[in-house]
Amino acid sequence: MYYICRMNSEFVQNWFSQVKKGTLTYIILNILSEKEYYGYELVQEIKRHTTLEVAEGTLYPLLNRLKTEGIVESKWVEQESGIPRKYYTLSADGRTTLFEMRTIWSTLETAIRKIQK
């Protein structure tokens, strides 16, 4: 019995990791649609909205990828500290992409709600 519970728990954890991985881009784009954020601030914002523990090391490769795809834009802003911040914002293409993603998400959400009833 204990073994089955542990197996299920592992299965759920793995599934949750996949869900997190799959939705992180969507979460980031939604947050960036409000205003521009710098990397560290974005991590805090993700935690605040979702209570998800984001592996910070995975955030920068993802942002880099989104920038390469033209979905986000970035700019360096000098600070009084002498250590600048790199601010990220959604590009025009990014807004269109997010709109399409929201439609898909909404359809999926409705379908899952129906199934769960």
Binding site: Y38, G39, Y40, E56, Y60, S81, R85, K86
Partner: peptide, 26 residues
């Protein structure tokens, strides 16, 4: 620059006594 900026933002409010712990965590 991006990584250094991240570390700076995460550690800038740390006290000298907690510098190591916070830096290690980041």
């Amino acid at each position: 620059m991006e990584l250094k900026s991240h570390v700076y933002e995460a550690t800038r409010n740390s006290t000298p006594e907690r510098e190591i712990d916070i830096l290690m965590d980041v």
